[in-house]
């Protein structure tokens, strides 16, 4: 089975580190970035299966990153999970409009994050098979 690629974006290296260990331990390939701009370039290059991004970051925020991804034909369908310290920061309308698959508020559980990633990727596979 092909290893799924996950792009983790957070300016907090501890968060990137812990999520990377959790996902690698569960068979995922992990790529990381420290801000939105760096993540966008990586997303265009490696086309990850899913992106886990922080909301508030220097240089380019998580929301700006998603907006840019959705504008690009190559990256517009990549599912995104948003990690945010402020759960109210992302509105329902924004989630729907930018096709944000899930929002997890910090502090979050790496276990829960893994389950959500698996769910989203499984649903995407089902949709792809149906097509």
């Amino acid at each position: 089975m092909e290893q799924k690629k996950v792009l983790i974006v957070d300016d907090e290296i501890h968060i990137v580190h812990v999520v990377a260990i959790k996902l690698r331990n569960n068979g995922y390939e992990v790529i990381s970035a420290n801000n939105g701009a760096e993540a966008y370039e990586l997303a265009c290059d490696i086309k990850p299966d899913i992106i886990v991004t922080d909301f508030q970051m220097p240089v380019m925020t998580g929301m700006e990153l998603v907006e840019k991804l959705r504008e690009n034909e190559q990256t517009k369908n990549i599912p995104v999970i948003m990690l945010t310290a402020r759960s109210f920061a992302v509105t329902k309308e924004q989630r729907e409009q930018l096709h944000i698959s899930d929002c997890l508020s910090k502090p979050f559980s790496p276990r829960e994050l893994l389950v959500n990633i698996e769910d989203i990727l499984y649903q995407n596979e089902l949709v792809a098979e149906a097509k």
Partner: peptide, 18 residues
């Protein structure tokens, strides 16, 4: 919440033997 998120995540990882 940021340091708290690290503390929570790392403790959970230790608890889960990750």
């Amino acid at each position: 919440k940021t340091p708290l998120a690290s503390i929570t995540a790392y403790s959970e990882m230790l608890a889960d033997d990750e």
